[in-house]
């Protein structure tokens, strides 16, 4: 289990050098050392655009992060060129020389999808159906990974 079920409904805190609230297009554009924190998940990037739906209540649907993306949650560290955090389906898709370390496990690849609900990360080197992210051409990266299987302790 990489991430215990993360609550993507929790309040979201943004901090950045510059934040633009565009009420008409229902989105918030942040730039300049952006940090987003939500219930223990920290997402950092140079630019983040958060789209929300405003049906009386505010529901952040998706965040597109661009440039020097790092994600930290419990003991997971991931970094990539860009990432898309889909809050509605609880998926974070990291694209562009992605590296993910979880305790001793390490994963590298062109594209990693972290499922926050199931706590699983699926990795795919190719750019099969990676969602198109403006400004990032998804390249097919080689997949490498090292896994440390915990030693079975016979005495127990």
């Amino acid at each position: 289990q990489i991430i215990q079920n993360h609550n993507s409904n929790a309040p979201v805190n943004f901090s950045a050098e510059r934040i633009e609230l565009q009420d008409r297009s229902d989105r918030v554009v942040l730039s300049g050392g952006v940090t987003v924190t939500q219930a223990g998940l920290t997402l950092r990037a140079n630019n983040i655009t958060a789209a929300y739906s405003n049906s009386g209540n505010i529901d952040v649907n998706r965040m597109d992060a661009l440039g020097g993306v790092t994600i930290v949650k419990d003991d997971l560290r991931a970094s990539s060129n860009s990432a898309i955090y889909d809050l509605d389906s609880d998926l974070i898709t990291l694209i562009g020389n992605v590296s993910l370390t979880q305790g001793a496990n390490k994963l590298n690849g062109g594209r990693i999808v972290i499922d926050l609900k199931a706590g699983r990360s699926t990795i795919s080197g190719g750019n099969s159906q990676s969602p198109s992210v403006p400004g990032i051409q998804s390249q097919s990266g080689r997949v490498t990974g090292t896994f440390n299987v915990p030693q079975r302790d016979d005495k127990k």
């Binding site: 979201v12 943004f14 050098e17 739906s53 049906s55 505010i58 529901d59």
Partner: peptide, 21 residues
């Protein structure tokens, strides 16, 4: 008029999502 608010310099924003999914 364009309903845009630009915050600059150590800008903080907190969105309380209270939509029940």
């Amino acid at each position: 008029k364009a309903r845009t608010i630009t915050l600059s310099g150590n800008a903080q924003l907190r969105i309380d999502q209270n939509a029940i999914k």
